[in-house]
């Protein structure tokens, strides 16, 4: 464990807490893409298949349970909670995410560390996570005005993977046997997808204005 990875995990945790806060405090999920939340639930379930077979540390197990539990709770809330579900922007959240699922799975069948069920699903979850934010970014562009909590949620979600890139650089320099090309390349793609969001987020923060994404 290094400071970059810890910062990354904490930032990721903050993004989940911000989203839970938004949904429970405002009883609304406006501006949040259910498709991105469902993709993230799939990411965590397929990535943590080793939850009960490989014990790394208490921290690792607890965080896995938190991410799986919170992502499923958010999907459940947005689908079935009688108050929250009414504020879901159904007609704006129309990204055809089957494409993302299909491409990620085919890529995982071709590019993986070992051809075992667990490793193929792990690679699938890495590729899927890189593109899982797309429905959310499209929804934010379509809905124009971005409420603070939704903007902060996406910001922290993007920042966490940026910390992980620093973690991979650090591990590459300090651990001679560290090669995680699948994670590194995917993580770079993932963070790059946020680049324009970060730019507009920074502009809005600098001008102390509402976050406006160009349609």
């Amino acid at each position: 464990m290094n400071i970059f990875r810890l910062a990354g995990d904490m930032t990721h945790l903050i993004s989940v807490l911000v989203l839970l806060l938004k949904i429970y405090a405002t009883k609304s999920c406006s501006g949040i893409s259910l498709k991105t939340q469902e993709l993230y639930a799939i990411v965590f379930v397929t990535r943590y298949l080793d939850l009960f077979t490989d014990f790394i540390s208490l921290y690792n197990t607890v965080m896995k349970l938190v991410f799986i539990g919170s992502s499923l709770a958010i999907v459940w809330c947005m689908r079935y909670h009688r108050v929250v579900r009414r504020s879901y922007d159904r007609e704006l959240d129309t990204f055809r995410y089957w494409i993302l699922l299909g491409v990620s799975f085919i890529l995982a069948l071709v590019l993986h560390e070992k051809f075992t069920l667990q490793e193929v699903f792990w690679a699938f979850s890495i590729y899927l996570e890189a593109v899982a934010i797309l429905p959310q970014l499209v929804l934010l562009q379509r809905s124009g005005n971005v409420d603070n909590l939704a903007g902060q949620y996406v910001f922290f979600l993007g920042a966490y993977r940026a910390f992980y890139i620093l973690n991979w650089i650090y591990r590459y320099l300090t651990e001679q046997r560290f090669t995680r090309w699948i994670s590194c390349v995917s993580g770079l793609v993932q963070t790059a997808l946020y680049a324009d969001f970060f730019y507009y987020y920074f502009i809005s923060w600098k001008n102390n204005a509402k976050l406006q994404l160009p349609a």
Binding site: R5, D9, R47, D50, K64, E113, Y164, R177, R180
Partner: peptide, 10 residues
Amino acid sequence: IEECNVHDEL
């Protein structure tokens, strides 16, 4: 040696 390709990252 212990199998080192266990994914220790979240």
